[in-house]
Amino acid sequence: MSTKHLVSIKDYTKEDILRVLQEAEEFEKNPNQRLLEGKVVATLFFEPSTRTRLSFETAVNRLGGRIIGFSDASTTSSSKGETLKDTIKMVSNYADLIIMRHHLEGAARYASEISDVPIVNAGDGANQHPSQTMLDLYSIYKTQGTLDNLTITMVGDLKFGRTVHSLLIALAHFKPTFHFVAPKLLAMPEEYINFCKKRNIPYYEHEDFTTEVINQTDILYMTRVQRERFTDIMEYEKVKNVYILNNAMLDKSKETLRVLHPLPRVNEISTDVDDNPKAYYFEQARNGVFARQAIICDVLGIV
């Protein structure tokens, strides 16, 4: 049997995704289960990310596992020039599972090829971040009761936002309709537009963020428009306030609409939305722990 990894959401079939979501549901009902008793999990954060690391480490702790690792590569031998291969080889001798984050794209794929124990990718540069996608899917599944036939509106930076790309690919299994709301400079890349075309997935591109689009939507997925993406600061000034969601814009939206955001947010969701029952981004982050418990057990073949 080959070792199971989660490097990219594309490694998971529709059935895999549904199985993990059902496991996540079980962990939400009963978060403390000592399924990792006697197991050692390594969290290797070559690139620091406190939010993601705490979520994974909470998941491991709730499962009764022990943790080794580092939260910043500057304190490890990789800063002394050790190759990724050597680090992974060494750690896979010690741990039953490796959760890793790296600033270089493809680092997790490569690690999965040399590791004897499962690798879970906790982000590799601009490339993949599959546990984020799984928690997004779980949030959608939980709030809508299904993943099928939903209208998903993605807003903001659709060019560089890896979370929207992975989510788009994962949702393709479930007959979605997409609305892409972004400035021209940050529009959904051709690769993903072609992906939709090939699969006959209906999609609509908009430059304006209007209530007309919001009112058709089941899931409003907001992202940050980051200043550093713009070479021309004038361009940034033009678009930075166009993609802001405020409470009044949700007035005529569906009762079941939920607003998601991968966090951290800056100003793209006004704080007056926070108390609206349709705001879901804080619960979304909480779902991350359950989704990660499910991912960990799934790659280890537990339950």
Binding site: T83, L84, K85, H102, H103, L104, E105, G106, A107, R109, Y110, D124, G125, A126
Partner: peptide, 12 residues
């Protein structure tokens, strides 16, 4: 051609 690709930073 991607400088941030692992293949350009690791002997592989």
């Amino acid at each position: 051609p991607n400088p941030k690709c692992i293949t350009n930073n690791e002997p592989m």
